[in-house]
């Protein structure tokens, strides 16, 4: 299943610029006037300890609300065109609809936008089937999510993200709930399938960031700041995790994460 060629990215993927990102709860400031660049067509990993505000930053980039917080900042595409409709979002949980088959779950986006009618319907179905085949689940197309393993479910979610065909993909710890082996395989698969797209992946796992990231940004402290400079590990992802260099960087990243100011407990709670 790792022989998957990338699903061709639609048009050249733009890079992102997050400018002046600010998120405040009544009790704490999660981050304040934060700037971040996400290079075009590559994987950027946003690494940080739990509760530092990674998810909030990703949600801000995705245009999703953060309940009960004052949010400011803008997210721009570096090609000058608006970002609306060019972002796909993948969450930590697979968020599959339990009443719908794997195939119908892949088709959720087209269904929600009312595209599943007329001549397009057959084409979209065929595309969904092709994507399920790419993630190795062609024979489980009619299975309900409850009948699939966690890894399979996340692969269906990946196919659901791919059918959206968006040049920018934002992912919030999509592999963290999986067992180590499944995670390892799925990371490689995702890197191959999403090649050419601009990917921003949030993770708390330094090893995951080292495996899939072209660039690794470390977010620590309260209010949170990005470590400067960002880390650009050598070699193309997915990197083997047994290399000495990766082990060294893993240790260094852990130190960097541990060295960040510990955020106040309320801030941790609020940012979750």
């Amino acid at each position: 299943m790792s022989d998957a060629a990338p699903v061709p990215a639609p048009s050249p993927a733009p890079g992102l610029r997050i400018e002046g990102a600010t998120l405040r709860y009544e009790a704490a400031t999660v981050f304040d006037r934060l700037d971040m660049t996400v290079p075009a067509g590559r994987w950027t990993c946003l690494l940080g300890p739990s509760g530092v505000g990674k998810t909030s930053l990703l949600r801000l980039a995705a245009g999703l609300p953060s309940e009960g917080a004052a949010v400011a900042g803008r997210v721009l595409a570096d090609d000058g065109r608006p970002l609306a409709g060019r972002i796909a979002y993948m969450a930590q949980r697979d968020l599959l609809a339990p009443w719908a088959s794997a195939l119908d779950n892949v088709l959720l986006g087209p269904r929600l936008r009312g595209e599943m009618r007329g001549p397009r319907k057959a084409a979209l179905r065929a595309r969904a089937m092709a994507l399920l085949e790419r993630v190795g689940l062609a024979d489980r197309a009619q299975a309900l999510p409850g009948e699939l393993s966690g890894g399979m479910r996340q692969r269906v979610a990946l196919a659901r993200t791919l059918i959206e065909d968006r040049p920018v993909v934002l992912m919030d710890e999509p592999f963290s709930a999986l067992d180590a082996l499944t995670r390892h395989r799925l990371q490689a698969q995702a890197v191959e399938l999403l090649a050419g797209r601009t990917v921003l992946l949030v993770t708390h796992d330094p090893l995951e960031a080292l495996r899939v990231g072209d660039r690794i940004e470390v977010l620590t402290g309260a209010p949170a700041r990005l470590a400067d400079p960002a880390l650009d590990p050598a070699g193309a992802p997915p990197r083997a995790t047994d290399a000495a260099e990766i082990a060294r960087l893993h240790g260094a990243l852990l130190e960097r994460l541990a060295g960040g100011e510990a955020p106040a407990p309320q801030a941790l709670e609020a940012a979750e």
Binding site: R59, A62, G63, L64, G85, I87, A88, Y89, A91, R93, L95, A97, W99, A100, L108, G109, R111, L112, R113, G114, E164
Partner: peptide
């Protein structure tokens, strides 16, 4: 999470109701 997903997918309120919230 479903509502987030529907939002990023560009779903209308009505289709979110019909396709996700209702079932």
């Amino acid at each position: 999470g479903w509502l987030d997903l529907a939002r990023t997918m560009g779903a209308s309120k009505l289709s979110t109701l019909w396709r996700l919230r209702l079932p």
